[in-house]
Amino acid sequence: MDTGVKEMVMEDLERFLERREYYRRVGKAWKRGYLLYGPPGTGKSSLIAAMANYLNFDVYDLELSDVKLNSELRRLLVATANRSILVVEDIDCSVELHDREEVEAEKAVTRRNSKHGSKDEERPKITLSGFLNYIDGLWSSCGDERIIIFTTNRKDKLDPALIRPGRMDVHIHMSYCTPSGFRVLASNYLNITEHEHFEEIENLLSEVDVTPAEVAEQLLKNNDPDAALCGLIEFFDAKRKEIEALARLKEEKAARKKERKEKKQQEDEVKKQQEDGTN
């Protein structure tokens, strides 16, 4: 990650650890929420591991798709220990969190169907209100030094109630690879801080979106810096050609759709004229 973002995260974590008495004085649970959002391969899971290592906290990975009832969720949250990180990855697609009113309405429909002989079974669900209540209340009050982290590829798909301040206190955008991020990767993987190809690669980064994971994978392919960086440049060229090909296909599809629409309009006009002439 960029150095500035990394330092911000470390400072926030350190401040959190030092504020036991502050949280107690203001009457808030000693917890901190983080939302990590951005495209796949930008380091969200790696950042969680780094945070856990930095704090020496345990990590609990909560797979919401395996939890069917609010009561089951309650048992899982109670079982988490102090000095821990609770992780819910891909919260936008791991499970559909239903509003309480929606669930109650479906229960009423189920009861009506049962009276009329329908055998449809009620589907167990985690409600949005139940999930938020347990996060805010029970889980927060039954221990200290808790961190909860949500990850998502699409922040805009999340319910605002999930990510408001007080739940997700810090929002961290995990972006595509930047020039500074590339230099960190080159230093880590190739043990170099300067190279004649750096400027060309940094220019390519401004033209083509690639994730840090993709860059790292290319740098892993060869221990020789020259060969590794040349391979990365070739990867950029291939990626750019792929993007251009997809753009052309999209344009051609749009053109065909427009052509079909215009043809349909012409046919409708001819048909209308024929009908008017008959009348």
Rank of each mutant, 00 (worst) to 15 (best):
C230I: 08
R256F: 11
L36V: 02
S175Q: 07
N203S: 12
E121I: 11
V95P: 00
Q218R: 13
I85D: 00
Y34V: 07
L69G: 00
E72V: 08
V215A: 05
G41E: 04
L17N: 12
D120W: 12
Q218I: 03
E234M: 08
K119E: 13
D136E: 14
R154G: 02
I201S: 01
K261W: 09
I48V: 15
S206D: 11
K68M: 09
L162V: 05
T42I: 05
K155P: 00
K257R: 13
E7I: 09
L158I: 06
K239R: 15
F16A: 00
G117C: 11
V9L: 15
D58Y: 10
E7Y: 08
I148V: 14
L62R: 04
R74K: 14
G38E: 02
D159I: 11
S187C: 12
I135H: 01
D237Q: 14
S129V: 03
L47I: 10
R25A: 10
K68I: 00
Y23R: 06
V78G: 01
L132P: 04
S129G: 04
A216D: 02
F235C: 05
L205S: 05
Y34P: 04
V88W: 01
E102D: 15
V170S: 08
E121H: 11
R100T: 03
R25Y: 09
L64F: 06
G41Y: 00
V210R: 06
L35E: 04
C142K: 11
K263C: 01
S175W: 01
F236C: 08
H197E: 11
M168I: 03
N203D: 11
E7M: 08
N82D: 15
Y23L: 01
G4K: 15
K264C: 01
H195F: 05
L97E: 04
R25E: 07
R256N: 12
G277L: 15
M174N: 02
T110S: 09
E106W: 12
S94N: 13
A108V: 13
D66S: 15
G130N: 06
R15P: 00
A161Y: 08
G4W: 12
A29E: 06
H197G: 00
L73E: 03
A254I: 07
K272L: 10
E96K: 14
M168E: 01
V78L: 15
H98D: 05
K250R: 13
T3R: 14
S84I: 01
A50V: 07
E242P: 02
D61I: 06
K239N: 07
G117A: 09
C177L: 14
M10V: 11
M8N: 10
A228T: 09
H195A: 06
Y134R: 08
I91T: 03
S187K: 15
T80Q: 10
K115L: 15
R164F: 02
E121T: 13
D268I: 12
F150P: 00
K6V: 08
S141P: 00
E217Y: 06
D169T: 09
V215R: 01
P40F: 12
R260D: 08
F236I: 09
T127Y: 08
E275R: 15
V208R: 04
R74P: 01
K253I: 03
L36S: 00
S65F: 07
S45K: 03
P160G: 03
E202H: 07
K261T: 13
G41M: 03
K272N: 07
A161P: 02
I192E: 05
K221W: 08
D12S: 14
S175H: 05
K261Q: 14
K107W: 09
N133C: 04
R154D: 11
